[in-house]
Amino acid sequence: MNEVDLNETSVRDFNGQLHALDEQSNALAWRALNPAGRHCLAVGLDAPCEVTIAGHAGYYCAGMNSQATVVVEGNAGVGCAENMMSGHVHVKGDVSQSAGATAHGGLLVVDGNASARCGISMKGIDIVVKGSIGPMSAFMAQAGRLVVLGDAGDALGDSIYEAQIFVRGDVKGLGADCVEKVMRDEHALALRELLKAANVDDSISPEEFRRFGSSRSLYNFHVDNAGAY
């Protein structure tokens, strides 16, 4: 285990050490002490390493991640795991706005709540939030899955494309072109796998969730829909 004290090592140096890793590296387990809400911790990783942030992280933590596992033992600020390509990001506290934004792949698990715009423009990432999510989440979400064990805020899935949303609690309101869909066996099966991957308690069953997605009515322009754009 490599320990880095961020009171002594700059974020640039810390990230530089992580960027130097590849799958051949001996030391793939890292722990960053005293993060104190610093921005851009463990961004741009591209090696199968495991990085633990021992406290609260600032903006863009684990952004652009490939392959790596990043665990935040606290809250994470705006843009956590934004544009992730692959790998696993686990936040044990809450995440701020735009968690998982534009991300193409990988799994983001949030033990607490996510605030506004969770999964905005997501392009293939799986996001599992064990608490609730804020308004305008999954805005223009193109692919991937957003799973919420708690409630969802207003304007969920506004202008959504082919991403899938599963919510166990209440939904305050749906955005334009987002509709509730039937939860078929194949969806429940896939959701079960995803909940398992996110270490969600076995007592929570896929049948407790409702599924939301695009009604696809805005895909082709129709003058009657002009007001919805």
Partner: peptide
């Protein structure tokens, strides 16, 4: 505006940290 401004407050590690809703 950002958590890092709170990071030096006494006892903040055990504080209830939250984001005010719009």
């Amino acid at each position: 505006s950002e958590y890092r401004a709170l990071a030096g407050l006494p006892g903040v590690e055990d504080a209830h940290v939250f984001e005010p809703e719009p």
